[in-house]
Design a protein around this nucleic acid. Sequence first.
DNA 1: TTCCGTGCAAAGAGTTTGCATCTGT
DNA 2: ACAGATGCAAACTCTTTGCACGGAA
Lengths: 148, 148
Amino acid sequence: MNASQRLESLFARLKERGHRLTPQRAAILHALVEHPGHPSVEELHRQLLHSFPSMSLATVYKTIAFLKEQGEVLELGFGEAGCRYDGRRPEPHPHLVCTRCGAIRDCGPQEDRALRAMLLELADHAGFSLDHHRLDLFGLCPNCRKAS
Amino acid sequence: MNASQRLESLFARLKERGHRLTPQRAAILHALVEHPGHPSVEELHRQLLHSFPSMSLATVYKTIAFLKEQGEVLELGFGEAGCRYDGRRPEPHPHLVCTRCGAIRDCGPQEDRALRAMLLELADHAGFSLDHHRLDLFGLCPNCRKAS
DNA sequence: TTCCGTGCAAAGAGTTTGCATCTGT
DNA sequence: ACAGATGCAAACTCTTTGCACGGAA
């Protein structure tokens, strides 16, 4: 599913629920889905100010909350200083976080199947159902490894 | 390594570094290591007030920060409202979080080896070194499954 | 006696909320 | 026109910090 398809389907859901498609909302959705990395709220807001000089941080927060509900964005809760978001792959997937430079890299989807199986097994052992998960790996990125 | 051994070795490290072994510190260490669950800072503080009616939250935070440095406690960063801590198994391990009642359960160490192998592989694929990780599974605990 | 630790209060950061105004539909 | 969205500022929560006093070594 590409970005414009996702935007379209999301807009449809917005309408269904009696929500409005404001220019700000469209811009936030767009920024999230198009962003290649893992932006913070501040980052998104700063970026959005270019096209909407009066856009408030609160609006960004509110819209992101809505998108989380809709499963259109993944919230990454590490970073210790503000959440980061992933609008491109909203389903949970592992992230690699460099403890030196702070870079965040997605893990490829190669091992997804094996990982899912393992997580299901873990949950099952304890009698839990599994809804979603979070997996973050911390270490040094290739650059910082070289530098050390 | 049992609780009293850990306390002892930690006390030794404190001394080495020129740190003091105050009654408050001992109490915080003790409370963390003895706690069977995943207490929040507030919870620990409340509990500690019984024996130290004047103990401040700041002291608990400061001491926990020190213990994190020392690798004596694991910080669990979910919960959206305050971190939780695990003083019994300071090494990273999976946690199951009930999205209804908030219960937090440790995963058993059964699959530890397979999991570690998988995480190392994930990190390696991206050229990262692996220092530590965090794995949280969200779903319904057995009780809440029954109730639903 | 000397620092380190403590406790208090104030400061900080990130996020949420209340409310008047504005605007899609 | 009406319900929902926006923007602003204030409020809130968790955590950290500054500083004077107190206590372990």
